[in-house]
Amino acid sequence: MPEEPSDETVVQVASEAAEGVVLSRYRQADLTDFDVTVTFEDGVLDVDVYVNPPADAEPDAEAVADEAARAAGDAVDDLFEE
């Protein structure tokens, strides 16, 4: 039976996936601020993504944050399937 990934690995994989989505949609220099917070406790993944791009930036910050959170969840699902 394969060994379960550590909580630290889960958090790292989720964080990298979420940050990757944000940085693929906006140039880092254009972002006023962005933050990705990930916790994994008792088998529950919690991902919070905050994006503050310039006012006229496309795509919409909320849509990018949602996409980043989904990507984090998908990356963790893939990690557990390995």
Rank of each mutant, 00 (worst) to 15 (best):
M1Q: 14
P2H: 15
P2K: 14
E3V: 15
E4C: 09
P5Y: 01
S6W: 00
D7F: 01
E8L: 06
T9G: 10
V10A: 01
V10P: 04
V10H: 08
Q12N: 13
Q12L: 14
V13L: 09
V13W: 02
A14K: 04
A14W: 08
S15N: 10
E16I: 11
E16K: 11
E16G: 09
E16W: 03
A17M: 08
A18Q: 07
A18C: 12
A18V: 11
E19D: 08
V21R: 10
V22F: 03
V22H: 06
V22P: 01
V22K: 02
L23W: 02
S24W: 04
S24A: 15
S24P: 05
R25T: 11
R25N: 14
R25Y: 11
Y26L: 01
R27W: 12
R27C: 07
R27E: 14
Q28K: 15
Q28T: 15
A29F: 13
D30E: 10
D30P: 03
D30M: 07
D30I: 08
T32Y: 12
D33Q: 13
D33T: 12
F34H: 07
V36C: 05
V36G: 05
T37N: 13
T37F: 15
T39R: 04
F40N: 02
F40D: 00
E41F: 06
E41V: 04
D42T: 05
G43P: 00
V44G: 07
V44R: 02
L45N: 00
V47N: 01
V47D: 01
D48L: 12
D48Q: 13
D48A: 14
V49G: 01
V49H: 03
V51N: 04
N52P: 06
N52V: 15
N52L: 15
P53T: 14
P53L: 06
A55N: 11
A57I: 05
A57G: 05
P59V: 04
D60F: 13
D60H: 13
A61F: 07
A61M: 02
A61P: 04
E62Y: 09
E62A: 11
E62N: 13
E62Q: 11
A63Q: 14
A63P: 03
A65E: 03
A65V: 02
A65Q: 02
A65T: 04
A65W: 02
E67H: 09
A68D: 00
A69Q: 04
R70F: 11
A72G: 04
A72Q: 04
A72H: 04
G73F: 03
A75L: 06
V76Y: 01
D77V: 10
D77L: 04
D78Q: 06
L79D: 06
F80C: 03
F80Q: 02
E81M: 09
E82R: 09
E82V: 10
E82D: 13
